[in-house]
Design a protein around this nucleic acid. Structure first.
Lengths: 148, 148
DNA sequence: AGACTAATTATAACGATTATAAAGTAATAA
DNA sequence: TTATTACTTTATAATCGTTATAATTAGTCT
């Protein structure tokens, strides 16, 4: 099974998901979703907008934002908010964390079993009812290490 | 030893720290630092600005931002960037994490030994040279639980 | 005091995101 | 099929946090 085939399977699954939620699949939505799934990066709204302006010369940047919100509400996409100016968007597949290069900004996924222990400690110490957590690791990626 | 005394000890320590780094202690800087240390919250730049406009009716919001940057560079203050619009600022005392209420936005500190294991796993899996990490836990605080 | 440097102020600019209103498109009902 | 309705996109303006700029003020050092 080739790479493109896997991508289109993911796209189809996502589209079915949206249809069930009563969301119309417009050409723009399809393209944004496709771009999110096929690009291995974690693009900003503007990057998506620019990547698709060839296919959709008249698409508005508001359409990108609107539909990213729709996808978020459907649980298909997560918004990643780091310190820098603009949000990045990540297709929700399996749970994973991100490690971010301080030097070039590259974001790499990595898996870790979970941090239930931290959550339950926080719960008992603070009295909160814990729902979720976020974690990012920062460092220098192999490429940037080599360059220094 | 009363609470005010402890606060002023912290303020003095912070001021000594800045002086050693060659930073002038202006009245504005003193007030911003004092507010950051004494307020138990994690204020935004605008909240600091508004809190001090009684004492400094002519202070510019740029002064708040400028000095928060100075404090950050001196290692006295950490900028907290969550998904919402504006950054929050936290005096660096001891290492701690934050737990945030999804309902009212309250931020509570909590301590946890550390997540060295996660860092070293990430390092070996990704080839990054890991420097630090951030983590936040989200949930519903006791007050908001009661209200529902 | 005089010269130099740093800090503050007021204001304008910037950039990401959101709101608005008009026009287009698809779904549904008569 | 046509009319009605709701949804979507587009273009544009507005908003808001933050940063840059230039002028003024204040502190430091001979």
């Amino acid at each position: 099974m080739g790479c493109m085939t896997m991508s289109s399977a993911k796209i189809n699954a996502a589209i079915d998901n949206l249809k069930e939620a009563g969301v119309r699949i417009t050409p723009q939505r399809h393209a944004i979703l496709e771009h999110l799934i096929q690009s291995m990066s974690h693009p900003t709204a503007d990057e998506i907008y620019k990547a698709l302006e060839g296919k959709f010369p008249n698409m508005s940047v508001a359409t990108v934002y609107n539909n990213l919100r729709v996808f978020k509400e459907a649980g298909l996409v997560k918004e990643l908010t780091y310190g820098d100016s603009s949000s990045r968007f990540d297709c929700v597949t399996t749970d994973h964390y991100h490690i971010i290069c301080d030097s070039c900004g590259k974001i790499v996924d990595f898996h870790y079993p979970g941090l239930d222990e931290v959550e339950s400690l926080a719960e008992s110490v603070t009295g909160f009812e814990v729902g979720r957590h976020r974690m990012e690791i920062y460092g220098v990626c192999p490429d940037c290490k080599r360059k220094h």
